[in-house]
Design a binder for these strands. Structure first.
Lengths: 110, 110
DNA sequence: AATATTGTTCGTAATTTTGCGAACTAAAAT
DNA sequence: ATTTTAGTTCGCAAAATTACGAACAATATT
C-alpha cells in the first residue's frame, strides 16, 4: 500500500504557509520588526533586543534566512543582518493577496 | 535561581505571531482560502478539499478556531464553519501594519 | 604566541506539531 | 430500537520546534 502523497497543496499556498510559519514566533516577529526599522545591523544588537540565549537567537535567524525573509553577511568577527528586500516584498504581496481574496464576500453564517 | 521570564515580547508581537503560526501550514491556508471564498460550509466539504484524514482536518480546524480565525457552529449531525470576520480583519490589519512599517526605509546593506 | 571578541554549531532535553486509525457522540432516519 | 450520518476525541508514533550551555571557528588585539 502506497500512502505517499503528491502535490497535496498548491505551490502558492505552500509558499504563503512557509512565510507565515517563519513569522510564527514572537522572537522572529521582533527580529523582523527590528531589522525593518534599520538598514541593517549586527547579531549582537539583535541579541540585545531579545530575552533569549545567543544560540537560540542564531537558530531563529537561521529560520528567517531559510524562509528567505532576511540575509546575513559576514564581517568578521561580526555578522551583519538585513531584510531580504525582494522576498520581503514577495511575502507582503502574498499576505495582501490572501486577505484581499473575496474580501467583501465574507459575512459569516450568523 | 529563578529563570522565569516575564513580558518577553510585546502583546502585539505575540498576537501577530499567533496569527502567523495559525497560518503556518498549507492545510490551514487552504482551509482559510476555501472558507473565505464562501459564506460558510460544513466540515465534510472542507475535508473534501484536503488530502488528509478527517481527524487531522478536525485538528487543524481546532487550531484555527483557537487562534480566532474561524468559528464553528453545530447543526447536528453537521458542523458549519466560517471565517471569524472580526478577527480576520484584525489579522489583516496586523499584517498590513507589520509590512507597512518602515516600508520605504528598507534597502538592505548591499 | 596568547587572548579577546563575535557568532555559529553541537549535543541534549522538553515540548509541540502533525498525522493516522479506532473509538466515541449525538441527532436523524429507518 | 437499530442503524446511519457527520464529526470529534483518544491514543499513539514520528518529526519538528524551542531552548540552553558548552565547545568551536575566525579574525583582531595585545
Amino acid at each position: 500500500m502506497n500512502t505517499t502523497r503528491n502535490k497535496d497543496y498548491t505551490i502558492d499556498n505552500e509558499q504563503l504557509a512557509r512565510f507565515a510559519k517563519a513569522m510564527g514566533h514572537p522572537a522572529r516577529i521582533t527580529i523582523l520588526e527590528y531589522l525593518s526599522s534599520l538598514d541593517c545591523c549586527y547579531f549582537g544588537e539583535i541579541h540585545n533586543e531579545l530575552p533569549i540565549a545567543k544560540a537560540t537567537v542564531s537558530q531563529h535567524l537561521k529560520e528567517l534566512k531559510d524562509a528567505g525573509l532576511i540575509q546575513g553577511e559576514i564581517e568578521t568577527p561580526k555578522v551583519k543582518y538585513c531584510i531580504n528586500k525582494e522576498n520581503w516584498e514577495k511575502a507582503q504581496a502574498y499576505f495582501e493577496t490572501f486577505f484581499a481574496l473575496n474580501k467583501e464576500k465574507i459575512r459569516c453564517c450568523n
